[in-house]
Structure formats: C-alpha cells, structure tokens
Simulated scan of single mutants.
Amino acid sequence: MSRIYSQAYLTAEASTAPEAIAQAGQLGYQFVGLRLLPNAPGGPHQRLLGDKAVLRECQARLADSGVGVFDLEIIRIGPAFDPTDYLPLLEAGAALQARAVLVAGDDPDLNRLSDHYAQLCALMQPYGMTADLEFMPWTAVRHAREALQVVTAAGRPSNAGILVDALHVARSDTSLADIAALPRALLHYAQMCDAPSTNAQGSSDLSVDDMIHTARCERWLPGEGAIDLRALFQALPPDLPISVEVPHHVRARAVGDLAWSGQALAASRALLDL
C-alpha cells in the first residue's frame, strides 16, 4: 500500500525551514518536519521563532508546494519543566498547521515526568497538535514500555502520543511485541532509518556515545543496515505516516540535501510500498 511520508529535519538538516519545505514538495513527500528549537543548548535548528518574515515565507512555500508540516522539534521535559516556556513553539505550530510536536523525557522521576507531560498536553490542546513522546535508550524514557507507562500515568490525554523510531527500537530493550501492544490511538507517526549492528570499531557493545553519534550523524538508508524494518513496520499500523529520518553528515554533504533526501525517500518506499 502507498504510505504518507514526511521529510524529517535531520534528513535535510543543512536546509532552512523554507528550503526544506520546497525540497519536500519537489521530491514527493507529503509532509515535512522542522526543528525550531535546538535538541541541546547551542544545537543546530532552523530559524523561525520570532521571525515573522521567515514564518510568512514558510506559509507561502507550504501553499505553493501542497506540503504540510507534520512535526516540530523539540520539547524536552526535565525535572524543572515549565510548559509555558514552549508557547512560542506552539504558536508557530498553529500558524503552520503542524500536526505534532516531538517530546523527549529527561526526568528520571517518571511520576514527575508524567505530571509534567500531562500539563504539556493540557497546554497544547487549543493548538491542535499531538505531544508525541519518543523513547530513546539514553534518555529517562528508555524503551516503549516506559513511554507507555508515562503516557498512561498522565491519564492518556486525547492529544498524547508515542513516537516509534526504528533506530531506538533496535538499540533499546524494546521488542516487537512491545510495539504491537501500543494502543493505536497513541500512534500518530513513526520514524524510518537503518543502521549497522556495530560501532565503528566493529563492536556490538554500543556505548551511549556510539548510539547518540549514529542517531544524530550517521544513520543508513533503509535496507542498508541490520534493522529488521519489515518486521517492525508490520507490527505497526499499515496506515501510519512515516517520517524519513536519515542523517548522515558525510554522505548528505557530499551530494546535498535534495539528493540525499530523495535517496532516503526512495529507499523507504522500496521497503514499505509493497
């Protein structure tokens, strides 16, 4: 079946927000993801918040291309979390008619994390976006079961969600049974990529630094690596939109964002559009 595909920020991370929107439309993506806040202090992101000219340009590119904004990045919930700090992101998301915001859990106190997540969901309700909690093995929400635990403890708000990333499934204590057990109402999209089973030194004993490096800098095209992507996506709903997230600093910079993102989309379709 034919799926809905979104170009993730990391797949075209050298591009500005307007450029990413135009490229996504040119390549045949239906949606695009934008990172409007850094994932760490000083981290890369796309300039838009507080810049009305860039917002208008993005809105014009969206109208011209027919592409929509799927997800915005990123909200991180730490121990001292105030959801109102993210109002500028939510306001931009509403202006762009975004569907989702990617959320990371950085608080090891899962009860407090759940309370803060519930507060975030309540604040986001009027903005029309889901709050999709992504489990990552180096964060406080390490695997799919913990993501479900947090969302359930928060009362499963109507805009709650769990984001499944193929890389984090493969490198965390998450089974296909865990994925199949996630309630359909909590699944709004999933992230696609591939990766090797070892680090650069050939060891399968991956450190946190190894995992973070791959996630942010060196993922492989779907079908090139060791992740059983067909089995994973068979465990997920067949109509789930796919965010193609394949950063590779060396290969992407060699050919440019447009060509690299096109390769990532073609490889994803080859695996999933059966």
Rank of each mutant, 00 (worst) to 15 (best):
T174S: 11
L187N: 04
C193W: 00
A195L: 12
P183M: 09
Q191M: 11
R171G: 08
A180W: 10
I162L: 08
A190S: 11
C193F: 01
D165N: 11
A166H: 02
A166D: 02
H168Y: 03
D165P: 10
A170R: 09
T174F: 04
L167N: 06
A177T: 15
H188K: 01
L182C: 06
V164Y: 00
V164Q: 03
R171E: 12
A181F: 10
P196Y: 15
H168Q: 09
L187S: 00
D165I: 03
Y189R: 01
C193V: 07
D165S: 04
R184F: 06
L187G: 02
Q191F: 01
L182A: 04
L187V: 05
L186K: 05
A177Q: 14
L182R: 03
P196A: 14
Q191V: 01
A166Q: 04
T174R: 02
I179C: 05
A170E: 11
S172G: 08
A166L: 07
S197K: 14
A177N: 13
L186V: 08
A170D: 12
L186D: 06
S197H: 15
L167Q: 11
H188I: 02
Q191E: 14
R171P: 03
M192F: 07
A180C: 07
A170W: 14
A170I: 11
L163H: 01
S175M: 09
P196N: 13
I162K: 03
S197T: 13
L163Q: 07
H168P: 08
A170C: 12
L182V: 14
T174A: 06
A185L: 10
L187H: 02
M192P: 00
S197L: 14
A177L: 13
Y189K: 00
A185C: 09
L167K: 03
D194I: 11
R184P: 05
M192L: 15
A190G: 13
A180I: 07
A190Q: 00
L176K: 04
A170T: 10
P183W: 11
Q191S: 10
V164R: 00
A195F: 09
V164D: 01
L176S: 04
A170K: 11
C193T: 13
S197E: 15
A181V: 13
L167F: 15
S172F: 08
D194C: 06
D194M: 10
V169W: 06
D178I: 04
H168L: 05
L163W: 01
H188S: 03
S197F: 13
H168M: 03
D194L: 04
D178P: 10
S172I: 10
P196R: 14
I162E: 00
Q191K: 06
A181Q: 12
V169T: 09
A177M: 13
L163A: 06
D178W: 05
H188W: 10
L167W: 15
R171H: 15
A177Y: 12
A195I: 08
H168W: 06
A180T: 12
D178Y: 11
H188D: 07
A185P: 07
L182I: 15
L163T: 02
I162H: 01
H188R: 12
L176Q: 07
L182F: 11
V164C: 04
H188N: 09
A181E: 14
L176R: 02
Q191A: 06
S197C: 14
A185N: 12
R171M: 12
L176N: 10
L167H: 15
A170S: 14
V164G: 02
D194E: 10
D173W: 06
D173T: 13
R184C: 05
R184I: 09
A180M: 09
A195M: 08
I162N: 00
V164F: 03
L182Q: 04
L186Q: 04
